[in-house]
């Protein structure tokens, strides 16, 4: 058991390192990147990876490595912030509903139902058609349409936990509702929340790319991994590197976030 724990601790360190490195890259992109992200040079378009252009150049001759670095700022901002926002919102609502029950539960769940009932991508497509997409707006919109699943799952866990002895016991001991909620319920639903959150990171990044697919994502010439992938769709056969590197970036991020969440989601066995 202890060997496994050690190994998972190593993994964790590695995963958190990767997350931090990605965030660092995003923050430092303008300093680290070898070129300007919008340095169009039509004479140099669609060059394969080389010593000068590590990840090759795109349809407009821009350096793909630079754009992946700059894309990290947008994609991570959307991925991490929107995921954090939506999961926090969902957890709060789910916990309160499941714990308090009664009219509050009914009200919150109907709200969740109403939000869930309207299909997410169509709703986002309509919203972005009404409001001009900017990065902060995309973060807010993606979290506004993304908290409901978390809230339902958390609520059903809370409901299930609420019927178990130890929380009733805690209440019987005269602990305050808030205290029970925060100290006893929250740790118990945490594994589920963590999975929700790690899934939400990838999902938020992908929602942005789906919006790019319909042309309402991050506006050019700004780069996001999602719109880079979208732009690469027509050159999948001829210039695979255009799709490969942003795709790998999304994969690495999702992987790191999931691995980092792994340890937190492993319940403590007493």
């Amino acid at each position: 058991m202890s060997a496994a724990n050690e190994q998972s601790a190593t993994n964790m360190r590695w995963a958190w390192g990767l997350v931090l490195a990605l965030v660092g890259v995003a923050i430092l992109a303008p300093l680290v990147a070898p070129f300007a992200p919008d340095a169009v040079d039509l004479a140099l378009r669609r060059q394969g990876p080389s010593a000068l252009h590590w990840f090759g150049t795109d349809d407009l001759g821009r350096d793909v490595f630079t754009r992946v670095l700059h894309g990290a700022r947008v994609s991570l901002a959307i991925g991490l912030l929107a995921a954090a926002l939506s999961v926090a919102l969902g957890t709060a609502i789910g916990l309160v509903a499941g714990f308090i029950g009664g009219a509050v539960d009914t009200g919150l769940m109907r709200l969740t139902d109403a939000m869930l009932a309207v299909p997410r991508l169509p709703l986002l497509m309509i919203l972005t058609a009404i409001l001009q997409p900017s990065i902060p707006l995309l973060i807010i919109l993606v979290s506004v349409v993304g908290w409901m699943e978390t809230s339902r799952v958390v609520r059903s866990e809370a409901l299930s936990l609420g019927r178990r002895g130890f929380i009733e016991a805690a209440q019987a001991l005269g602990l305050s509702r808030t205290r029970v909620l925060v100290r006893h319920m929250l740790p118990n639903v945490l594994p589920t929340v963590i999975v929700s959150a790690t899934l939400a990171v990838g999902r938020s990044i992908l929602l942005e790319s789906a919006l790019s697919f319909f042309g309402v994502g991050v506006q050019p010439p700004a780069a996001s991994w999602g719109n880079m992938l979208y732009q690469a769709q027509s050159t999948m056969t001829s210039e695979p590197w255009l799709a490969l590197f942003p795709g790998l970036a999304i994969f690495l991020t999702t992987l790191a976030v999931n691995a980092a969440g792994e340890r937190l989601s492993t319940p403590a066995v007493s």
């Binding site: 998972s8 899934l199 992908l206 790319s209 769709q233 799709a243 795709g247 999304i250 994969f251 991020t253």
Partner: peptide
């Protein structure tokens, strides 16, 4: 959990949730 099977499953599922549907479909 934590063993090779788990790792393989994790890698595959993470790869899958990293793919935009349009891109994977194409």
């Amino acid at each position: 959990r934590g063993r090779a099977t788990d790792r393989i499953v994790s890698a595959v599922t993470i790869a899958a949730i990293s793919l935009p549907a349009f891109w994977f479909g194409l």
